[in-house]
Amino acid sequence: MTYLSRIRINPLRSPSRNLLGNARAMHSIVMHGVPGDATGERILWRLDADNPHRPWLYVLTHTKPDWTHLIESAGWPGAEGEHAHIADYRPLLDKLRAGDSYAFRVTASPVQNTKAPTKLTQAQKDRAQERLDAAQTTGRRPRSLRLGHRTAAAQMNWFTERTPGWGFRIPATEIEPQVPGIELDDSLASEVLIRNRQRLSFGHGTSRSTKHPVVIHTATFEGRLEITDAQRFTEILLAGIGPSKAYGCGLLTLAALPAA
Score class of each variant (00 low, 15 high):
2 T>C: 06
3 Y>N: 02
3 Y>H: 09
4 L>I: 01
5 S>K: 00
5 S>T: 01
8 R>M: 02
9 I>H: 03
11 P>W: 04
14 S>I: 15
14 S>F: 15
22 N>W: 02
23 A>P: 01
25 A>Q: 11
26 M>T: 13
30 V>C: 05
32 H>Q: 10
33 G>I: 04
35 P>C: 11
40 G>A: 08
46 R>F: 10
49 A>P: 13
56 W>E: 10
56 W>A: 04
58 Y>V: 09
59 V>D: 12
61 T>C: 08
62 H>G: 07
63 T>C: 10
67 W>C: 12
68 T>V: 07
68 T>N: 15
69 H>D: 15
69 H>F: 14
69 H>I: 11
73 S>A: 15
73 S>K: 14
74 A>W: 11
75 G>K: 02
76 W>P: 00
85 H>Y: 03
89 Y>H: 14
90 R>L: 11
91 P>N: 09
91 P>I: 09
94 D>K: 13
96 L>Q: 05
97 R>F: 00
100 D>L: 02
101 S>F: 00
104 F>Y: 12
111 V>W: 12
114 T>R: 02
115 K>N: 13
118 T>D: 08
118 T>W: 02
120 L>I: 01
121 T>D: 03
122 Q>G: 13
122 Q>K: 13
142 P>Q: 01
150 R>Y: 04
151 T>S: 13
154 A>T: 01
159 F>P: 01
160 T>M: 14
160 T>E: 14
163 T>R: 05
170 I>V: 08
175 I>F: 07
175 I>H: 08
176 E>M: 12
182 I>P: 08
188 L>C: 06
188 L>G: 02
190 S>H: 09
196 N>G: 02
196 N>R: 04
197 R>I: 03
198 Q>V: 00
198 Q>W: 02
200 L>M: 03
203 G>E: 10
204 H>S: 14
206 T>H: 07
207 S>L: 11
208 R>F: 05
214 V>F: 06
214 V>S: 08
216 I>G: 04
217 H>V: 00
217 H>N: 05
220 T>F: 06
223 G>Y: 01
225 L>A: 07
226 E>N: 03
229 D>P: 01
232 R>E: 10
233 F>S: 15
235 E>Y: 07
236 I>R: 05
239 A>D: 12
239 A>C: 06
243 P>I: 12
243 P>V: 10
244 S>K: 06
245 K>S: 06
246 A>E: 10
250 G>S: 14
253 T>D: 15
257 L>M: 06
258 P>V: 04
